[in-house]
Design a binder for these strands. Structure first.
Lengths: 218, 218
DNA sequence: AATTTTCTTGACCGGTTGGTCAGATTGTGG
DNA sequence: CCACAATCTGACCAACCGGTCAAGAAAATT
């Protein structure tokens, strides 16, 4: 752009104050790290590659995140937050069809919008959760126990079949996250093309249909 | 053992002929590699660690498998074979309850007996299937198309609800493999103890119950 | 028993990795 | 405008990794 600069006092590009710049850089790095960790795994990812994707010198990454482990930990923690918030769809639902249906919708949407995050999470758990074991043992366990109580309440109220609530949760996690974690396989079997909007709707509909009918909630 | 050797001509330890020794070593290495790849991922695994687990010098690994990639490829291929053979439960079944029920049983058993293999497979696919993309595009696609035809046949014959066969297959894969790939999470939520025989039966029963009822096959 | 082939292994090598650091640059408060 | 602190970065390093190799040990062949 060779046009003259506007007469406003701000330089046309960036305000570059400290706190904004810091937040912006951290976000850029975390986003790049999520992608690289998802594609290569923790061991296969390199700080140099993350730096390249982020468009920053490698040494700059170490200014914001002291070690590779620290950066990885932050990525996993951020994903876990999103994961937990999906529970909001579950609560205050009057019946299983509403609550579980909304939960499936939300988790499918997460698989669609945050496939990299889901992969990093899956990889972390698959490798024995070396950095978030405490989350599993505390936060996730409490969360799970709470949801089991909700489901058991629905069963006791005769609103759904007496299935095992814990294993139902596993099924919900497995079926929804499959579309993120195994997205490459799904895409390959879809003729090598990403799922279309209609495909996603069909997947979502199908999962809800089978599970809700499977627990006699409809 | 200070007792005298038995009078039979064979030395009490090993026959050490060439072909047996080779097969034995290959099996030891592949088993160790499967474990290490499952726990650390391809990038995180080291030939030295695999050698230590196998109880062999690292240089010996390279005698049987030229490169890390070649060893990894063999591990993944072996798993894929097991995976495909699970389809036998599917074929020649008169109705969906029998066929899909048996398939779930078989795949749950694979998750139980070969959790490491399942993890390596999951990891490979999650990272974009860099070494087995051709399997996905040919063998797996054909397999999938065949099973879809079987399911569609059942639907057309009015033996089950008109769900989307492709997405049903994804559900079957996701729910059964979850117990292997996310076994650590399941174990943690199970109080840190491995699933008991009863737990496995409950899991299997629950998956079959929900899915078979979900597709109106019972 | 001699010889050839297969197998085993410690030592070694070039390349890569996570991480460091000193010095340059930039924003901020006085 | 100055001084100080925060930010940025090229150059560097020790550790580690996959892979090689030559020489020895063991089995098969003659």
């Amino acid at each position: 752009m060779t046009s003259q600069a506007p007469p406003t006092k701000r330089p046309q590009k960036r305000p570059h104050n400290r706190i904004e710049s810091r937040r912006e850089n951290e976000r850029t790095i975390l986003s790049a790290a999520e992608k690289v960790f998802a594609e290569a795994g923790f061991g296969g990812a390199t700080m140099q590659l993350i730096a390249d994707v982020a468009g920053l010198p490698k040494a700059n990454l170490h200014y914001y995140f002291a070690t590779k482990e620290e950066l990885y930990r932050r990525v996993v923690q951020d994903i876990f937050e999103i994961w937990l918030h999906a529970a909001d769809s579950f609560d205050n639902a009057p019946d299983p069809a509403t609550g579980i249906g909304a939960y499936i919708d939300t988790k499918m949407e997460i698989s669609r919008r945050h496939p990299n995050g889901s992969k990093v999470w899956a990889s972390e758990v698959m490798h024995g959760a070396p950095v978030i074991q405490d989350y599993l043992e505390n936060t996730l366990r409490d969360w799970t126990d709470g949801r089991i109580r909700v489901i058991q309440g629905w069963i006791d109220a005769g609103k759904m079949a007496p299935i095992n609530p814990r294993h139902l949760l596993y099924m919900l996690w497995a079926t929804t996250q499959h579309y993120a974690d195994f997205g490459h396989q799904v895409e390959t079997l879809n003729g090598g093309k990403p799922l279309s909007e209609a495909d996603w709707q069909a997947a979502k509909h199908n999962v809800k249909q089978i599970i809700l009918r499977g627990i006699s909630a409809v």
